[in-house]
């Protein structure tokens, strides 16, 4: 099963690399065009010379194969935008994004599940949890981020408004922004799964045997409710990465989302390509991991 999925990921990656390359290649305006527009002293000869130097005078398809060969030989090229080897840029950015995503996902899952379980166990709390979940999934992420900055960084001055300095303090607002948007799904799934589990016949029999309510809830019902939550983690991996783009742009945090946005807007195709591919692969591996966890936990899927 794992081998088949890995093969599938590999095939998808190759297909994506081709699609990305073509899409980026078809975007209007190459880097030399931009340089000429920005610098009146560049002449027609300069343009031709620079274009040849950057290999931009070759047809798109042969550029793809040259690029693919270079990547496979471990040399994914040079970032025009940051004047550094692409590989050297992606490492730190990926680490930074994974940190952000890890904390945000952790908080969203724990808090969301807790709220969901609360709603299932205490029906009186259910409407409040439902409203919160509805709110969480309806607020545009960047708007929430701005509001958090205004309140916590500017008015109260408790937290940095962005940037990478300040260690964990700089992480709080971006993590909160991202976690809130993703909390809703976990709360809803946990609530319905937990409510469903509590009505299972064997829970009723456990209750009849005189097991305490809390033992029933945590030892019997909760493990069943956890399965859909884990499924959701796998399905949400892509959405999380999307949220990271917005969060990183807003909080000026280094990371893959910002790297991709800058690279595409700044016409840095080497960087954009590799960063997109790395993000896609990591996301696919993330959903694979979630699937495996789900299989391990859920006896029904084997």
């Amino acid at each position: 099963m794992i081998a088949a999925r890995l093969a599938q990921i590999a095939i998808t990656t190759v297909a994506l690399s081709f699609i990305f390359f073509m899409l980026i290649g078809l975007m209007p305006g190459d880097p030399i065009d931009l340089a000429i527009a920005g610098d009146p002293r560049l002449t027609a000869e300069d343009a031709a010379r620079l274009r040849a130097l950057h290999g931009l005078d070759q047809p798109l398809l042969s550029r793809y194969f040259a690029w693919a060969a270079a990547v496979l030989s471990g040399n994914p090229g040079f970032s025009r935008l940051f004047a550094q080897p692409v590989a050297a840029l992606i490492g730190p950015a990926l680490l930074s994004t994974l940190t952000l995503l890890g904390f945000a996902l952790g908080i969203a899952v724990v808090l969301g599940t807790a709220l969901g379980v609360l709603a299932a166990l205490r029906p009186r709390a259910a409407p409040a949890v439902q409203t919160l979940a509805l709110l969480a999934q309806s607020v545009p992420g960047f708007w929430l981020g701005i509001m958090l900055i205004v309140v916590f960084a500017v008015w109260l001055g408790w937290l940095p408004a962005g940037g990478a300095e300040g260690g964990w303090r700089a992480l709080i607002l971006p993590v909160a922004t991202l976690a809130f948007a993703n909390l809703a799904g976990y709360a809803r799934h946990a609530a319905s799964a937990m409510a469903g589990a509590l009505h299972d016949p064997w829970i009723r029999s456990a209750r009849a045997r005189g097991a305490s309510e809390s033992r029933i809830a945590w030892r019997h019902a909760f493990p069943n409710a956890a399965v859909p939550v884990i499924t959701l983690i796998g399905l949400d991996a892509g959405a999380l990465v999307s949220g990271a783009v917005i969060t990183e742009a807003l909080f000026a945090r280094p990371g893959m989302g910002k790297l991709i946005f800058d690279a595409i807007m700044g016409n840095d195709s080497n960087l954009a390509l590799l960063a997109l591919l790395v993000v896609a692969v990591v996301t696919m591996l993330g959903s694979l991991g979630a699937d495996l966890a789900q299989r391990a936990l859920d006896p029904r899927i084997r």
């Binding site: 940095p160 408004a161 000026a252």
Partner: peptide, 18 residues
């Protein structure tokens, strides 16, 4: 020298003393 592309975020960093 710190780069913040979004000018709202830049203003926020100034107001927050960063």
């Amino acid at each position: 020298v710190r780069t913040v592309e979004n000018t709202t975020a830049l203003e926020a960093q100034l107001l927050a003393g960063q």
